[in-house]
Nucleic acid binder design. Structure first.
Length: 364
DNA sequence: AATTTCCCCAACCGCGAAGTT
DNA sequence: TAACTTCGCGGTTGGGGAAAT
């Protein structure tokens, strides 16, 4: 038969650890290692269950734990890996030396997730969601020069979008996609690409649009667990991620990337980042918000000089945006930025124009 | 200065996979 | 092979500090 229960929870201490307990645990592990968590607390003279000891050690006392604020490199790495792995915090932590899964999870939930939401990006799918987008703050600046559009009216008093507005915005997205058929802007666009896509396809992962990438990953399991929405992310297995070269080499530009051989085990998830684009570093060229599904075919181009640039390639599914995420200096500004600066940058990131052809009043 | 609200994060909980008998 | 435990993971909670009122 099996072993006896790991611990009798009655009488065992819970809650925050004292310094004395920490010292006991550290001393014991330094002398004996941490083989058996069940017997460890008793042997170490701790009135804790093994589970609590393991947690304390792995999340706090381990000597290799790096504490303090997450660097931009780390943050971007987390985003990248999350776009691939989902909430596999332990797998993400495995690729961030010194960080624990718990720490990463907390950081995600308290910082990154909120930031993505502010950007209108679904933190689960890394896809844009107009219903999440705080358009009032984003559009008010981006449409600064489009005085004909009554933004406050367009947006209402806050970010609560009414369905028509959503339709408008979605239509706009689609209009860019269907640039050759501008007359379809309002009413005749395929519903599957408009509002229904908001519901059905908002979870479409970026990699779905990567069907024409140089190579494709074979044998990836289909993801159905990330969320309740349809999802066919070809997730690499954890083993594949563990074994893979952390990130592909730098690509000087998109064309180079397109012509380059991607690591075969990551083709489905890596999307290149143009060298002048970064996630955090404010760049005056960044004027674009794109539906990631448009990233290849869309005529929805930014105002900048790099029409190939894809929003999706930079933010939504970011695995490649930092070819050397922990040490790179090429893709973003190193150094400290405030949360406000990050947000500001994110807002810049989402700027887009509503063309004159769109008479907003028609939708109101 | 006092109170309330917000936010962070360490720790706990419950579950499933893996291991043991 | 079944029954059971241990381990590890992801989700959640709540205490405490910071910020706002």
């Amino acid at each position: 038969m099996g072993r006896s229960p790991c611990c009798d929870k009655n009488g065992l201490k819970r809650g925050p650890w004292t310094q004395e307990e920490d010292h006991k645990l550290i001393d014991y592990i330094q002398r004996h290692g941490y083989g058996n968590w069940r017997t460890l607390p008793k042997n170490a003279g701790l009135e804790r269950c093994g589970k609590s000891c393991r947690l304390r050690w792995t999340n706090y006392l381990r000597p290799d734990i790096k504490r303090g604020k997450f660097s931009f490199d780390e943050e971007e790495t987390i985003i990248q890996l999350h776009s691939v792995l989902g909430n596999k915090w332990s797998a993400i932590a495995a690729r961030l030396p010194g960080r624990t899964d718990n720490e990463i999870k907390n950081y995600w939930n308290t910082h990154i997730r909120k930031r993505l939401l502010r950007m209108g990006i679904d933190p689960v799918t890394h896809s844009p969601r107009l219903d999440l987008l705080d358009l009032s703050s984003i559009l008010s600046s981006s449409l600064y020069n489009h005085s004909r559009t009554n933004i406050p009216r367009l947006l209402g008093v806050n970010s609560s979008l009414n369905p028509e507005l959503l339709k408008l915005a979605t239509s706009f997205m689609s209009s860019q996609r269907e640039n050759q058929n501008r007359e379809l802007l309002v009413g005749n666009v395929d519903e599957n690409q408009l509002c229904s896509s908001h519901v059905q396809n908002q979870y479409q992962p970026l990699m779905q649009s990567n069907h024409d990438l140089p190579t494709q990953v074979q044998g990836f399991p289909t993801c159905t667990s990330l969320n309740s929405g349809p999802c066919s992310i070809p997730f690499p297995s954890e083993a594949q991620l563990v074994n893979m070269d952390p990130f592909p080499s730098n690509f000087s530009d998109l064309n180079e990337w397109q012509g380059s051989a991607l690591p075969s085990n990551l083709t489905g998830v890596y999307v290149p980042l143009p060298p002048n684009y970064d996630y955090y570093g404010p760049d005056e060229h960044h004027q674009t918000v794109l539906d990631p599904s448009l990233s290849e075919t869309s005529n929805f181009q930014s105002n900048n000089s790099n029409p190939s640039f894809s929003f999706a390639a930079s933010v939504l599914s970011t695995p490649s945006s930092s070819p050397t995420p922990l040490n790179s200096s090429s893709t973003y500004i190193n150094g400290s930025c405030t949360e406000d600066e990050k947000d500001s940058y994110c807002s810049n990131l989402l700027k887009f124009e509503i063309p004159d052809i769109l008479d907003v009043n028609d939708f109101m």
